[in-house]
């Protein structure tokens, strides 16, 4: 570019600035357009893939999981979408499937609440759902349950998946577990459902008062455990139904 020194140089400068701006708008426009078409293409491809593999996605839990993972790693939420039930529902009625599963989870949580105080182990839920469904052609996985519980969130029922010492449990009562209670649950799980004060005092260096208070609170206040007054060794033992395996 020729370096001008007169007044005209200003004009030229303005002009080139304008054309640069124009060019940049043009460029970004085409870029956006390109992106749009790419996105549309991707969407079609994904939709195509989903429809093609619809049966596998519905039936094979590994495949379903892989697909869901793929979706989330590229930032597509299959549950989000313009329609009710989201894109899943639109594509292959998986929305209904998810809702149906949600209803069954609620069913199980509510029907077992009186005996387990609103805490239930993930495997137990899966086992009972399989039983509830009778002859089932499709397997249910943890991911499915977690996903279904997410869809229940807007209902505000307070269903939550929590981690108790590496084991997933579903909590169906909006109740906060303190750390002591979590430890009691972990202990119960290791001991097949039975906890005595002794285990907490010796195993976790708790004072007897602390162990007693934690267990009695779970028994009387929360209804999370049952007491057995005929324990052979200690006379009084606490049993946590949510960590026991029921038929």
């Amino acid at each position: 570019m020729r370096r001008g020194v007169g007044l005209a140089a200003f004009d030229r400068h303005e002009q080139s600035k304008r054309s640069f701006a124009e060019l940049s708008t043009q460029l970004s426009e085409s870029q956006v357009q390109h992106l749009h078409s790419q996105l549309a293409q991707f969407r079609t491809a994904l939709a195509h893939f989903a429809t093609n593999h619809r049966d596998s996605i519905r039936k094979d839990p590994n495949f379903r999981h892989a697909f869901q993972q793929m979706c989330s790693s590229i930032g597509v939420d299959p549950l989000a979408g313009p329609k009710k039930g989201g894109w899943w529902a639109e594509m292959f009625n998986l929305g209904d499937w998810q809702y149906e599963l949600g209803v069954q989870i609620v069913d199980i949580c509510v029907s077992t609440r009186e005996r387990n105080g609103g805490m239930i182990v993930m495997e137990e839920v899966i086992r009972m759902i399989v039983k509830l469904r009778g002859v089932s052609d499709a397997e249910i996985t943890e991911e499915d349950i977690v996903r279904s519980i997410k869809t229940l969130e807007p209902l505000g029922a307070g269903y939550q998946v929590i981690d108790v010492g590496g084991k997933k449990m579903i909590r169906s009562v909006p109740k906060e577990l303190d750390t002591d209670q979590v430890l009691v649950l972990v202990t119960a799980r290791e001991r097949g459902g039975r906890v005595v004060e002794e285990m907490l005092v010796h195993g976790h260096q708790w004072t007897r008062e602390r162990a007693h208070a934690a267990l009695e609170n779970m028994l009387l206040r929360d209804g999370l455990c049952w007491v057995d007054e005929q324990d052979e060794t200690y006379g009084r033992a606490y049993w946590i139904p949510s960590t026991m395996e029921w038929d």
């Binding site: 009186e114 209804g223 049952w226 057995d228 007054e229 005929q230 049993w239």
Partner: peptide
């Protein structure tokens, strides 16, 4: 029923809700 093989089933439960279930 399976609850009959749960040891605490044979003790009266102090929690009223649990008690009524049992």
């Amino acid at each position: 029923p399976s609850i009959h093989s749960a040891p605490p089933f044979f003790t009266k439960q102090p929690n009223p809700i649990t008690n009524s279930t049992a």
